[in-house]
Design a protein around this nucleic acid. Sequence first.
RNA 1: GGGGCGGUAGCUCAGCCGGUCAGAGCAGGGGACUCAUAAUCCCUCGGUCGCGGGUUCGAGUCCCGCCCGCCCUACCA
Length: 529
Amino acid sequence: MAESDGVDSAGAPEKAFYVTTPIYYVNDAPHIGHAYTTVAGDVLTRWHRQRGERVHFLTGTDEHGEKILRAAEANGMTPQQWCDHMVESAWKPMLAAIDAANDDFIRTTELRHTGPVQQFLRVLHDRGEVYEGTYTGPYCVACEEFKLPGELLQPGDRCPVHDRPVEQLSEENYFFRLSAYQDRLLAHYRDHPQFVQPDSARNEVVRFVESGLQDLSLSRSTFDWGVSVPWDSSHVVYVWIDALQNYITAAGWGSDPQRFAGLWPADVHLVGKDILRFHAVIWPAMLMAAGLALPTTVFANGWLLVGGEKMSKTKLTGIPPQRITDHFGSDAYRYYFLRELSFGQDGSFSWESMAQRYTSELANDFGNLASRLTSMVERYRDGSLPAPAPEPALAGALEKTVLLADDRMCAMDFQAGLAAVFDYVRLVNGYVTDSAPWVLAKDPARAADLDRVLYATAESLRALAVLLNPVMPKSCARLWTSLGAEAALGPLAAQRVQDAGRWGLLQAGSQVRKSEVLFPRLPDDEPAP
RNA sequence: GGGGCGGUAGCUCAGCCGGUCAGAGCAGGGGACUCAUAAUCCCUCGGUCGCGGGUUCGAGUCCCGCCCGCCCUACCA
């Protein structure tokens, strides 16, 4: 198969596999729900990178809007200072804690974003997609802000903050002709079933659009922390319209056409299901209106439930990722959430299940297998790996494992992909026990059998290091070193998923060294917060 | 009210177009082994597949009704 170096035969940059997370609102404190989406994107992109593809992984922060303005005021800072503070003290540390290898980090207050956003608005305006209109909605005088019909207290349409009746107020706004896109959106959903995933999310979106769309007001004039509407500086762009564009502005739209051509359209927008509608309805309509290509897939992941409830800041169930990574490490964190939960469905997090999977699967099954092998090669063969030898029982299973894992991971079915890999881990543990190399070692006449068993086990671990590297890069790097694989095979990052199932890659004489255990057993107890 | 998804062994969940689909892992019980992180391996206990009808030679698997849970129902990041 063709190796990719990022350039196709014509010399033009190969279009990258482009994955995005939502940009996170800096006013929120990062919790495991944010990190879940980010980890999924990171593992997905690392997997494709391990397949030899050119990849681009984008994340970032959303920094405009009235809430930011008010939070900054409350903290005695300018909005920009407040955003800078939150990005540096909360959001970037979260990425470091989960070991995310994003290629870019976009902030909506950056000039590379705000300039192109204005350009985009002009394009919509010039194309007749925007008109001036009147927004009428429930308004609380005490709050000095519009309320959402759904949040009003009943009976009487009362403000949930002040418990007093709201009044209907009108504001002159600019509107986007979203309603004009109903049929085109429905046609797109119909012709591109992979556009919204999983199916449950797609169903909801289709039903929603079928029920009819209203035009969307895309500007605000009651505060000024946002991108100015280019033809009317008394308005700022509605924060969602601003935020969605990060996916193209970060890719170079409006600033770097060559870069944009090499990235857009995005292959996957990962989103939480709470913001699905913005990504599966408004965003594609905006792109259609501007004449741009649509992303291939919008994938909505489920929510993490804690104690059976959705995490909530107000209920103090929003768990910071660092609380878990401090105890279990980033590799285990990444593994746990993708292995335990079915991506796309809601799932429960509990400290107990995290500890259980850590101990059972990472420490006892995977880590211990590495210990068994390295210890025996040191003990029986002075740390020098025996020569390659066939072992059909394992080689056949490994080949199937690689094909299945690759298929599942590319489909974003991380749970099944990891299950396939760990089925193989179990198989190898069984193989070692059945082969009983410690018995073979006592009989010089069976030296060849011992060599074969040691080689087969090492070769299996070699493949596991490749397959698990996108999920657990730190541990797999140590395993790679421990196997002495780099001398003959090169860096772990250079190993291709497609070749991982080939038997006989590790070379005779590789220096195998027992290292610190990959996943030390840990106390199960949850540390006090 | 309308809509979406789900309700399968103690726990977490697989089960595509109906016919070894009654499963996996963990937990529990028993045994083997000692290379290894008191790890590993094997065996085993265990479920009227939410409830009630229906279609069919045959239904967790399709249809209808009901019960329960979560979510969506437009400008909340």
